[in-house]
Amino acid sequence: MSRKELLSKIGLRADGRRAQELRRIRCKLGVFTEPDGSAYIEQGLTKVLAAVYGPHQVRGGRSKAQYDAAIVNCQFSMAVFSTGERKRRPRGDRKSTEMSIHLKQALMATIKTELYPWSQIDVYVEVLHADGGVYAACVNASTLALIDAGIPLKEYVCACTASLANNDIPMVDISYQEEVLGGPTLTVAALPMSEKIVLMEMTQRFHLDHLPKVLKEALRGCKDIKVILDEAVRNHLVNVGSSSGWVKNK
């Protein structure tokens, strides 16, 4: 397989996956005790921790507070050791600020903010290892943390990346290696049950004709992720429930 090829002739990717396969997802809810909700997710080697505080009183002056909805505050931060080359600063650079804004956009679409007027919900994400699809992992981790915090959501919000190999075949869940190899990357955050897209971002280029199939593949990835997250949430509730004795079976 040549270096530039994203998909080999027999249909395998650099890490041995097929084009439509996600990386292994492992997740856990309730990692920490201090925040109201927390979650940890691993997508392949990408590892993200998320913590949710709130809803609580608006911090730093009431001028920001809204009379009809809660404000959602997001902070994206990457551990300095998360990338191959050590980062200088964990947050505050342009990329992190952009990530925070995009994360807020995705979460605002699903949180029922109208239930908490005059209050604030904080979502903090910390990337421990960046290996492609960082934004997607952050959205998925935040969803789990919000569920752990018991904040009402309209539905799961999931994110997934997709790319185009050999100018023809769409692939899902792009790793860092594949990002570097130079394929275009389409990041989609979606509400998988109602099939609505809340955020779409693309780097590099491909022909407009390819967009529908790449987008379809990304949406399918979101749906697959939703199934995995849903199972994790149910398992977590059974575990929590069994300790307090309200789950009969198990």
Binding site: F32, E34, P35, S38, L49, A50, A51, Y53, R59, N73, Q75, S77, A79, P90, R91, G92, D122, Y124, E126
Partner: peptide, 10 residues
């Protein structure tokens, strides 16, 4: 990390 407490934000 702000995960520890919201006071650490920014």
């Amino acid at each position: 990390s702000a995960n520890a407490t919201p006071d650490f934000e920014g």
